[in-house]
Structure formats: structure tokens, C-alpha cells
Amino acid sequence: MAPFAQDCKRCFKAFVFATLTALVAVSSSAVGAGRGWIWFGLLYALLAMQPNHAQDVIVNRDVNIDSLDRNTARLLITMRMTEWPDKRPVTVFVLPDKNPLHQSFAKRILDVYPYQLRSTWDRQIFSGTGQAPQQVADEQEMLQRVSQTGGAIGYIGAPPDSAAVKVIKVE
């Protein structure tokens, strides 16, 4: 559960930083340094408290890796890498193109735009050089399918409560 711990640490840091900023703002306004700082501090605190739209890459428990680099994650999701290092087949699950989680996963974790993923999958399907991932309706189905399918990879918005899947780090 390393990413979960990391997320918490990040949240905590942001909270501390925001509180400090707010305190500095309030105290500086008290000495007449300017009212603008109060608003700035409050806004910052608010932003920092916003739920962090974090994504986690999840894999079936039988997948024998703990971390992935970004390029490898991209090769897996675009289905150009069809087997794990131990030669077992990869099955990829994705959310629909317009799902906000899919969009932020593509941009933040894979560093590609969602339309580029679609165009890569389309080129593979309609030239006979590859396939497209399995689409799931929502995060609940994602969790279920990844946990039930050997060699599966997918992603979710928040770390799962259960140990049905393995969460892996993308570096």
C-alpha cells in the first residue's frame, strides 16, 4: 500500500503548508501588510484541501511486478506489449474515452492525450496489427474484472479497500 501512504503524506504536507500560509497571511494582515494575503491564503488552503484526483495502476494479484516506468505503462495500455516479463498474457481494461478518470489517467500517468490512445487502438484494429483494450463501465467493474482476470491491468481513482488487486507504482 505504498502509494496510499504516499498520497496521505502528500495530503498532509499540503495541509500543513496551507495552514502555515493562512497563518502567515492572517498575522501579516494583522500588522497591516495587506488584506489580499488573507484571500490568497484562504484560497490556497481550499485548493490544497481539494480531494487529490489521484490514480493508481492496478494489476491482478498474479502479476509479478511492483512498479512500472511510464514508457512501459504506455506500451501495456496501448497493447503493444502483450505479455508480462514472465511470458503470461496481458489483458488491459480501460474506462470509456469520455470518463474524467480515463482522461486524467491518460494525461497524468501516461503523458498522452486520450485522443492519441484512441487513434493508436484504432490504427491497430483496422490494420490488423493489434487489438484494443476491454472497456468497462465504471470503477467498480474495473476493480472486479482486474481482480478476476489473470494478467490483467487497469486503473482506479482511489486505492481500493480490499486486497483483491495489487496497486503498483508508475515512476
Binding site: 505479455e83 511470458k87 503470461r88 498474457p89 489483458t91 484494429i125 483496422f126 487489438q131 484494443a132 476491454q134 482476470t149 489473470g150 494478467g151
Partner: peptide, 21 residues
């Protein structure tokens, strides 16, 4: 040797894909 493992883990529907336009 890869196939037996592949078949037990992936459903047929996940290995066969049909698309059209």
C-alpha cells in the same frame, strides 16, 4: 507452452474482437 495458460486466464470474448464501420 504459452497457449494453455493464455486460454485458462483470458475469456474467449476477450481474445476475439469484432469491429466494424
Amino acid at each position: 507452452p504459452g497457449l494453455a495458460a493464455a486460454q485458462s486466464e483470458q475469456r474467449f470474448g476477450e481474445r476475439l474482437q469484432i469491429h466494424g464501420f
